[in-house]
Computed example of a mutant assay.
Amino acid sequence: MEIVRKPFPIPGTPDKDVCLVAIGDIHGRYDLLRKAIPCIRKSLPQDAKQVDLVLLGDILDRGDAAIEVIDYIREGIDDWNIIPILGNHEQLLLRVLNASDAAYRPTWRMWRGNGGLSTLENLQIEIPPIADISAASHKKALIQALRQERIDYIQNFYPFYRSGSILCVHAGVDPQKTLEENFSSDRLSQHPRHWAWIRDGFLDHDGPFPEGVFVVHGHTVIPGPKLEPHRIGLDTGACLHGVLSGAIFFNHEMTIFQVTSD
């Protein structure tokens, strides 16, 4: 099933002639992403000269087809600009791949226990138990299973994407800092107010955000897209509830769309 709501005005707009499409956390639901694409095509404004498709992070883990999602977006969709944002789940994987031998095992266990197991099963390549081989050998096997071209692609995911006054980010921003300060932090930091992890201080912030941006984010699952004065969250639990949500921004209007597994 697909639902496309009527456009309504918001206090923000992408760059002139740009249609910005943002999709919430996919979490390996390749089936829902494939259903969303024709829904988007039908809903694009005719006078848009450029389409920026922003994936709001957490593309990997939990679902059963994360690798298919990665390969699909790597290949490109129509003539759209594909802009994948780094989510905390991609960040957890990159921390594994960048870990020292001493830190590798606990970093691996953290990723694997937070949804990484689904991505590993999706690879259909059995990696030897970590207790049976060295950390260096285990990492080598993981890299071979993932393939270097996929790793390189994930390494280059964006921390954020901004078009006009629309700011797309995975979890949010710390409103007590400038945007430059927010995004100058280490990409792989797990600080609770990092842009890939923040909830407290962002979700309960009612005022405007730095530079007057309208923030489009995922990370925190909500029953349905809920518009706040200066932000909207689009993670509606693709894995938990079978609902993938997104929004189309053009001029000063936003159009919400959803696809479900029903």
Rank of each mutant, 00 (worst) to 15 (best):
A247E: 06
I125G: 02
S137P: 01
S137C: 03
V173M: 08
L203F: 07
W197N: 01
Y153W: 13
F160G: 03
I82Y: 11
L120Y: 10
W108M: 13
I83W: 13
V96P: 02
N182G: 07
Y158L: 14
V54A: 11
I73S: 05
D235M: 00
H194S: 09
E68D: 14
K49A: 15
I85R: 01
I83L: 15
Q46G: 13
I82Q: 08
P129R: 02
G116L: 03
P11T: 07
L120R: 04
E180F: 03
D79W: 12
I130K: 00
L20N: 02
E121L: 15
E126M: 14
A145T: 08
K177R: 12
G201L: 00
C39S: 15
D206C: 07
I83R: 13
S245E: 12
L56V: 09
L179N: 05
P208Q: 00
P106F: 12
G164T: 09
G115C: 02
S118H: 12
G116A: 01
E68A: 14
S163M: 02
D132V: 04
Q176N: 00
W197E: 02
L32Q: 08
G87I: 06
H138E: 10
N122G: 14
A65S: 09
D262I: 05
R199I: 04
S163T: 02
M1I: 09
W108T: 07
D52L: 11
L167F: 12
I37Y: 00
I67A: 11
C168K: 05
L244D: 05
D101W: 04
V221D: 07
R187V: 11
W197K: 00
G28V: 00
A22G: 07
G207C: 12
I143D: 05
D17E: 12
R199Q: 04
E228M: 09
K35H: 03
I26D: 00
I125M: 10
R112A: 12
H205D: 04
L94R: 04
L86C: 06
C39T: 15
F209H: 11
T260W: 05
I127Y: 04
M1A: 11
S118G: 13
Y104Q: 06
A48F: 10
A22P: 07
I222R: 01
I198A: 01
P175G: 09
K226Y: 08
F249D: 06
S163L: 01
H230G: 05
Y104C: 07
P128Q: 11
D61I: 05
H230F: 14
T260L: 10
I85F: 08
N88M: 00
V21P: 05
K140Y: 11
K35I: 05
